[in-house]
Design a protein around this nucleic acid. Structure first.
Length: 669
RNA sequence: GCUGGCGUAGCUCAGUCCGGUAGAGCAGCUGAUUUGUAAUCAGCAGGUCGGGGGUUCAAGUCCCUCCGCCAGCUCCA
């Protein structure tokens, strides 16, 4: 009999008969391993346990603890869902059902949209099928037979998939879950050996989707779910979704009196006094950071003639998101970005090489006429402002400037206790300019990243067509990722706007433009901060830093003087002068997440003190007013963080359905 | 923009299936209470049921339409 030699991860090897199944290799290693086995990795390819080994090579058994296990299990769970749906909805057509970062989905064409009760029924059916521990069996069908089979069964989408995915193959692989109705699906696999291995899954929601994600194609019903290898991981994930819901900035924004919306101004926030305070704290914080870093603050017009947008290219590429206005027969647009205004401003003067880099910072409002369906709380709005800036540099200054920017990013995210990662995006297929210029620019970005000690990943070909860029994802207290900062090199617009500087050689030269934002839109960043801190802002950000709570009316005068002293010391102090019991006032202040409550009664009025109660630590005892002020100012100065992280899920980052790493790159230009 | 769900008092929600002139809790207001570390008691007031149109003797409830919100999709210089 022919034999093959398999090499195991520990370096040892065994000789087994040709066509030995992966399962049997596991069995040969240890029965326990065979029992735990979910799949195999043969020469680096993930395969079923039933995969026959035909040639010498490496074999690794995939178990619960392997990194491959989770996506595998999710994919198999998607199949289980499809099996359940075909049971419950005879005639349902199956689309595709992949594993995703958070779980899985499967798309179906059905007669009517799914409702929540359908999800319950599906999940119940899935649990039944899992309890029966039905095997996932791989079958190789002649291609034409498979097509004929799916065509006959009324699944033209599957026929289309076979056509597209297996051109030139004689056989295609299908998987069946051997239940009484024998659910069969065209699929490359692999899958877990049987449905009994799927122990922790939950269907989450349904939504509309289109075949191949194209709105011109048939609308389908998508069912989202998630699955884990262990029940405790699923529970942790669901807990985290709950936690994310509790932190939802839309809910907290209302409860904490920060902002509101009105249907007559969709996509634009109304900032209430406390929200406006927070907004201004952030805006001024950015000014405080950027001014010493060599930036100047400018203000440029909100509305420009169409001619400007034609020059910048926005008219050709971005018009659908621009709010147009007619004025005296001229077409104008509210600015969606600051860049063109900054170019005009730069070009309004002659610049010497001695003055570069020139860094324009601007916080005026922008308007992007986003499609109504994409608006969402503060994270996707039509009106917002940014910590926007454009740095005009000589080509040889790029490296230094990027390095300075990386340090700014480090410092700023550090102040908010946000972890982050960096991504370098390089030359796309369609690009402007010379390859040599691109290579040089990418090299300078890499060098700057390394010099600044900034870890990063590379996204090949994901740069803007006018230049490479570095994007940053921040991770909040419950593990969700959000894209905020972006640093983009631009070689195109200096030409478009004929920007120049006079060099040491007394000749005219083109500067390079660096577009950059660090917090991005203040609106969106505030949403992130609300969810990051769960509304309990550290003292330096809290709209109300301390509230004075008199015990009874006779302490009002003293309480007011305490409040006034706080204000005089630059602290945001308030006074609760309602005739309520102290417990009531404390409860309210606590729910409003005010960092410090200062209780004043007979003792305190007599001694000139306050009883300090902290939001997180409870009663701190008496303190002189001056001592409290000194302590609070120190806490503000150090930006001490009091974020409230929760236990992280053991196997995955938390998400909130609408929140995670939105794809809307800060669309700067 | 597309698909689906939703829209009742400031907030959270009941009432909508089977049409018969709106209900609770919290918040608010008024009064009493003068209070020591997470909710004092009582009373009062509050809604063109998202807007418009239609069906009907009668519409929060049924139909059409518009707007907004939510979840996705799509888009994202």
């Amino acid at each position: 009999m022919n034999q093959v030699t398999v090499t195991l991860p520990d370096g040892s090897s065994r000789t087994v008969p040709t066509s030995t199944h992966v399962r049997d290799v596991a069995e040969g290693i240890s029965p326990r391993l065979a029992k735990a086995a979910l799949a195999g990795l043969v020469d680096g390819t993930l395969v079923d346990l039933s995969y026959p080994i035909e040639k010498d090579g490496s074999v690794r058994i995939v178990t619960d603890s392997s990194p491959e296990a989770l996506p595998l299990c999710r994919h198999s769970t998607a199949h289980l869902l499809a099996a359940a749906v075909t049971h419950l909805f005879p005639g349902a057509q199956c689309g595709i059902g992949p594993a995703t970062e958070e779980g899985f989905f499967y798309d179906f064409i059905v007669d009517r949209p799914f409702v929540p009760e359908d999800l319950e029924a599906m999940e119940k059916k899935m649990k039944e099928l899992a309890a029966q521990d039905l095997p996932y069996e791989r079958q190789m069908w002649p291609r034409d037979d498979a097509k004929a089979f799916f065509a006959k069964r009324g699944e033209p989408l599957k026929v289309q998939l076979i056509d597209e995915k297996t051109a030139g193959q004689r056989e295609v692989s299908c998987y069946t879950i051997k239940d009484p109705d024998t659910f069969i699906d065209f699929c490359v696999g692999p899958h877990v050996p049987s449905t009994g291995r799927l122990k922790a899954f939950k269907l989450l929601n349904t939504s509309n989707a289109y075949w191949k994600g194209d709105a011109r194609n048939q609308p389908m019903q998508r069912v989202y779910g998630t699955a884990f290898l262990a029940d405790k991981d699923l529970k942790a994930y669901l807990t985290q979704i709950e936690e994310a819901k509790k932190r939802d900035h839309r809910k907290l924004g209302r409860e904490l009196g920060l902002f509101t919306f009105h249907h007559w101004a969709p996509g634009a926030a109304f900032w209430m006094d406390k929200g406006a305070t927070l907004y201004n704290i952030l805006a001024n914080y950015m000014r405080d950071v950027l001014f010493p870093a060599g930036y100047v603050e400018v203000k440029t017009p909100l509305v420009y003639n169409k001619a400007l947008w034609e020059r910048s290219g926005h008219w050709q590429h971005y018009r659908q998101n621009m709010l147009l206005i007619e004025s005296e027969g001229e077409t104008m647009s509210v600015k969606p970005m600051n860049c063109p205004g900054h170019f005009l401003l730069y070009a309004s003067q002659v610049h010497s090489y001695r003055d570069l880099p020139i860094r324009f910072h601007e916080q005026t409002p922008l308007h992007r006429d986003e499609a109504s369906g994409v608006l969402s709380g503060l994270t996707r709005v039509r009106q917002f402002s940014q910590d926007d800036a454009h740095c005009f540099v000589m080509p040889e200054q790029i490296g230094d400037e990027i390095e300075r920017l990386l340090r700014l990013v480090q410092r700023i995210y550090g102040d908010f206790g946000l972890e982050y990662t960096a991504k370098l995006s390089t030359r796309p297929e369609q690009f402007l300019g010379e390859i040599a210029t691109w290579n040089h620019a990418e090299g300078q970005l890499k060098q700057a990243l390394e010099k600044a000690g900034q870890a990063y990943t590379v996204n090949e070909g994901d740069g803007a067509f006018y230049g490479p860029k570095i994007d940053f994802d921040v991770t909040d207290a419950i593990g969700r990722k959000w894209q905020c900062a972006t640093i983009q090199l631009d070689y195109a617009q200096a030409d478009n706007f004929d920007l120049k500087y006079i060099g040491a050689d007394n000749g005219e030269h083109r500067p390079v433009v660096i577009h950059r934002a660090i917090v991005g839109s203040f609106e969106r960043f505030i949403a992130i901060l609300i969810e990051h801190y769960a509304g309990a802002f550290p003292l330096w950000l809290a709209p109300v830093q301390a509230i004075v709570l008199p015990i009874s009316d006779r302490h009002l005068t003293y309480a007011a003087s305490v409040r006034d002293q706080l204000k005089a010391a630059g602290l945001r102090g308030e006074l609760d002068e309602r005739q309520e019991k102290i417990g009531y006032k404390i409860r309210e202040a606590q729910l409003q997440k005010v960092p410090y409550m200062l209780v004043v009664g007979d003792r305190e009025s007599a001694e000139g003190t306050v009883s300090v109660r902290s939001r997180s630590g409870g009663d701190q005892g008496a303190s002189s007013i001056d001592d409290f002020i000194a302590l609070a100012r120190d806490e503000v100065r150090t930006k001490a963080s009091s974020s409230t992280p929760v236990t992280k899920g053991s196997t995955t980052d938390a998400t909130e359905q609408n929140g995670e790493a939105r794809k809307d790159k800060a669309r700067q230009q």
